[in-house]
Every structure is written in C-alpha cells, then in structure tokens.
Amino acid sequence: MLNLAILLQAESELLPWQQSMADFFFSDGMVTLGTWIAAGLTLFMFSFVYKDNPLFRFGEHLYLGISAGYLMSLYFFNNMKPKFFYPLMPFLDVSGDTTLNLWVLIPGILGLFIIFRLIPGWGWLSRITFAFYIGGFTGITLPKVLNGLLLPQFYATIDRIPYMVTSWDELVLLINALVLFVGALSVLVYFFFSVEHRGFVGGVSRVGIYTLMIAFGASFGYTIMARVSLLIGRMQFLMFDWIGEEIVGRIAVLFHGG
C-alpha cells in the first residue's frame, strides 16, 4: 500500500527523502558513473558483431529486463494513473483537476477480462475485449486509411501526360508521367491474385516486380543512410561523452601527425 501511495503521489510533490534521492542520482559523480555504465553496455552489445558471448548476454538480459520494467512503469504513470485511478478516485489527484468519472469502469473491466485468461474456465471473457478492441480500432482506422492514404495516392497517380514536348523540362515531365502511369498499373497487376500471371498479364506483372525492386533499391540506400547516422550518434557518445574530446583530439593528432 505504501508503494501504491508513493506511485500515486503527484510527481511535483517530492518528499524530503525523495528529493535527497533525486539530488544524489543527479550529482556529478553519479552522472559520470552513468556515462561509464552506458558506454560499457554499448560495447557489450557491439561485441555481438564478433560473436555471441557472455558480455552480450549480460547486456541483452539487462536491457530486456529494464525495458520491460520501464515500459510497465510508463504505462502505469501515463495511462493507468491519470486515465483510470484518478477518475475513479479523484482524491488521489492532488492537483484537483480530475473529477469522478465512472465511465472508465467499462474499459477497466474490459482490461480485466484479459487477465482472466490466467484463470482456467474464465479465459473466454477475454474474447469480448479482443472483439471490442479489433472491431473498434478497425472502424476508426478504415475511414482514416481511405481518406489519408488510399484516395490521396490515387489522386496523385492520376496526372496529365504531356503529349506535346517542346522543351527539356516537358520531356522530363513526360518521362515522369509515363513512369508513374506504367509503374502504378503494372504493380497493381502484380498484386492481382485472381488470375494466373501468364502471357500478357505475366509480362505486365514482371514490369511491376521490376518497378518494385527499383523502388526497394532506392529505399534500401535511403534507409541505410539513416542507420549509419544512428551508428554515428552512438560513436559520438563513446568518443565525446565517454572518452572525452581532449583524449580523442590527442589520438587524432597522433594518427595525423599533428
């Protein structure tokens, strides 16, 4: 109960011992220690590039456990507390912004039904929740997908083909329009499952798969660039936050001869 009371307490109202803890964990020494731990764990995870090893396993299990626990606490503080406990027990909200709202009992009970899966013979109740969840979400998503994804794509696909080419720009426009027209139609034919892909349809669908592969190639290169930037970010953390700019500078001078 004490833990629950602490969890439900407003974050801004720190008790003296909580304030002391916060001061301790954000002190310079602890921040430095945190950087060393982060750098060590980063190297543990990178060691997987060589092969599976105990250091990687340690990092992997720690990462898994911490992330599961952290996300659970996030769900509690960001969802359960403000959206379920406070509306049911407004007196717990010290800010006084929440009023009693018994409607939250409905999603609360639906959530409880999922936990009933752990009780033999009661598991069928969870199907009510799943039906509500999938049905409701699909209903909300369908018009959004039509309005935000499907129709705009068709709108963009239907375009003028400039048949009178008098300049270089118009030639580029013509090529662009033809690629779009042929590419979109052939890809649609490739994803047509009601006829065998033989003869004319087979030929068109082959153009479609080539179009897809060219698009995938472009996407591959683009995404790899983004991944490399992630790696650069992690290397910058190791070099500047952990090793330190001064030492990195000296090493650089050593290699470049100064």
Partner: peptide, 10 residues
C-alpha cells in the same frame, strides 16, 4: 518486452 531494440536483441 515491448521495447523495440531490446526485443530485437533478445
């Protein structure tokens, strides 16, 4: 876990 990269690591 629900965390993306720790799931991948596991």
């Amino acid at each position: 876990t629900e965390d993306q990269f720790s799931y991948a690591a596991a």
